[in-house]
Write a protein that binds this DNA or RNA. Structure first.
Lengths: 210, 210
DNA sequence: TCTGTTTGGTAACATTTGTTACACAGTTTA
DNA sequence: TAAACTGTGTAACAAATGTTACCAAACAGA
């Protein structure tokens, strides 16, 4: 575990903190599409993402979904701090987009480490800021962009997160993430294909232009 | 200043922290519509809102606006922590919706206090969480609600923040906040009036039903 | 009072997005 | 292999939102 942690976090955390994490953290490997956090879940620990990609989704009462953002290596789920400390509910769903490795940190340590480690304070504050900025970008997307732009942004963002130039997905799945209908997605994808930006296959979309 | 601070924050902060705040904070009174933070601003200090109401607005490159949320008594601008600590740009604009009083805290103290005061740690974490939740609600609004619902929610939310049952505003100003056009706002307001939920006057909207 | 400006109402039309329906091809299962 | 299911393409239509244009009332300043 120490090695896996080092691969990214050795530049983020002090050595003593890394040691503590190894001692109290629990390692978990997530399968593709594994559910990490569900809507009303009580958070058991704060996840540190070692590698992979995790999708964070918001859902309303009627069960309608909306993608908020993706987590990458080095990220943590800031709103789990919330639920962890105020022991409230989470309000989001987290799903592994591909095989991923995480370390869960026990809730009790969070406050203790804020006092003890400057690198932990920086990490926590930084995580919140990154997350707030992501949320602002999500708002920008919804408020200022039309569906065709949103779709193209979605495809290129996701390709980057997944480190692939083509995505294995269906039109219906995209429609869920963007909170629109399958027909609309098919229509706009076809349009993007005609513009030469992507190429469509069954269950697969190749991105030609970033 | 100590008294003004006590009126709300005596239940939030330890006495020693309140003392420190009185020593190093700078008090400022904001006029209605006074600009507190602008887009590319370098943050000089973190604001604590003693009373009043502050509007936080996002703007894109083309100068198009979108209301994110309101700050109330006891709130702070979480994304100013961001800019304060990482000395980056802010990405938002903050405007006093009515006369308000704030205390600015110097950037240097923020980290120091995290170590020293548990109440400060709680406050910072809490503020971030509240802000993240507000952002999620904003996303919900944009993703799941139609313009007529958004408009009605805007009116009732704003009335609550302002502690008034009628709002002094123009259709155009509402259109800016919701990022739509004046004509659309007028149309939907008229519809709400026909449904008996509001009453329209020049420069004023009375809310009949919450 | 006269005049220009701000604000709000409304019609007509354009564009974007959502919905329903159906065809067809590829894939899986019996 | 036949039947059922899944994924995609497309047309036709409906609803929501955005745009342009114009009018009239309220207001502000000279």
């Amino acid at each position: 575990m120490r090695e896996k942690l080092n691969s990214y976090f050795s530049y983020v955390f002090e050595d003593e903190l890394l040691d503590e994490i190894v001692q109290v953290g629990t390692y978990k490997k997530l399968r593709e599409n594994e559910l990490l956090v569900d809507l009303g879940d009580q958070i058991k620990g704060v996840p540190l993402l070692l590698n992979g990609a995790i999708k964070i989704v918001r859902e309303d009462k009627k069960g309608e979904e909306m993608l908020l953002y993706f987590l990458e290596r080095g990220d943590t789920c800031a709103s789990s701090f919330a639920s962890a400390l105020s022991s409230g509910k989470c309000g989001i769903r987290a799903i592994a987009e591909k095989e991923s490795e995480v370390i869960f940190l026990p809730v009790e340590k969070l406050d203790e480490w804020l006092v003890k480690y400057k690198s932990w304070r920086n990490f926590v504050i930084d995580s919140y800021n990154v997350r707030l900025n992501e949320m602002m970008e999500t708002v920008d997307t919804l408020a200022f962009m039309k569906m065709d732009e949103r779709l193209y942004k979605y495809l290129t963002d996701k390709a980057q997160i997944m480190r692939e130039t083509s995505l294995n997905t269906t039109h219906q799945d995209i429609a869920y993430d963007l909170h629109t209908s399958r027909v609309v997605v098919s229509r706009l994808l076809k349009q993007l294909e005609n513009e030469g930006k992507i190429k469509l296959y069954r269950n697969k979309i190749e991105i030609l232009e970033f």
